[in-house]
């Protein structure tokens, strides 16, 4: 049948041809109004909740936020000193680049309805400078990377998708590994970790910066379970993502660029 052949052609074109990526990015703008309309009820609810709050609750929240801001500012001061020290040490070691990251605040407006794929839709697109491969964070850790940048919306692949893998290292001792998504929002698996490797439950995994895709040093997951089976070649390591992958609404898109070039 002609239509079936046409559909199969379309599928193979989409999978094989690079030109289709541009077409897809343009087409994804068509999806924006649908996600926008569907997102409306929760936005109206949020607005209603903020508008109808009592004065005392607002004052309370204000005070709490001010205290939190003060605390964070204090930590930033310390950070500044540490950063300067870090630059000096890097200079001593003759290492070249330090990364400083610029961010763009975006809002999550939709979730891809297919439960087998972990993707979300953001309200920022190439018009705002979003590009394919850009890392996405929330307040607690790394969430994923942009896989499709339309003009006004973009699609992000989460780190827990079965097609996603990310180079990480253990924050405690620098042990490197690859964290793969297994299709569950609350779990990642580390590939090819030697049975004798020094990795424990509770270790924080951060991005290693290898692979040139993600900037180094952002928290990814916390090791939840290490199974060393003598019958297996590698240890089985499971980790829980630090980011609230199914709850975060306000997220950060990171621009990675090199600054502070030293000798």
């Amino acid at each position: 049948m002609l239509v079936v052949v046409l559909a199969l052609l379309l599928i193979s074109a989409d999978l094989r041809l690079n030109e289709m990526a541009v077409t897809r990015a343009t087409l994804s703008n068509l999806a924006l109004p649908f996600y926008w309309v569907v997102d409306m009820p929760s936005r109206v609810m949020g607005w209603g909740r903020e508008t109808l709050l009592s004065r005392s609750t607002l004052l309370e929240e204000n005070a709490r936020l001010r205290a939190e801001s003060l605390l964070l500012h204090g930590q930033v001061q310390q950070m500044a000193a540490q950063r300067a020290e870090n630059i000096r040490l890097h200079a001593l070691l003759n290492s070249t680049v330090l990364l400083q990251d610029d961010v763009l605040v975006a809002e999550l407006i939709g979730i891809v309805p297919d439960p087998a794929r972990h993707q979300v839709v953001l309200n920022k697109g190439s018009r705002d400078g979003v590009y394919v491969g850009q890392p996405l964070l929330d307040a607690a850790g790394l969430m994923g990377q942009v896989v499709e940048a339309g003009t006004h919306v973009s699609r992000v692949l989460l780190i827990t998708d079965t097609t996603h893998a990310i180079p990480v290292q253990v924050n405690r001792n620098g042990l490197r590994a690859i964290a793969e998504g297994i299709g569950r929002l609350d779990s990642l698996e580390l590939r090819h970790v030697a049975s004798t490797a020094d990795i424990r439950v509770g270790d924080l995994l951060v991005t290693s910066g290898l692979g040139q895709r993600f900037p180094a040093g952002y928290p990814v997951a916390v090791v939840e379970e290490v199974i060393r089976d003598p019958g297996q070649a590698f240890a089985l390591v499971r980790a829980t993502p630090s980011a609230a992958l199914n709850r975060s609404r306000h997220v950060l898109l990171v621009y990675t660029k090199a600054v502070g070039q030293t000798e």
Partner: peptide, 13 residues
């Protein structure tokens, strides 16, 4: 397909 960001042609087929 466009809405779901699926492979183009998947739902069409």
């Amino acid at each position: 397909d466009i809405l779901e960001g699926a492979v183009l042609g998947q739902n069409a087929l």
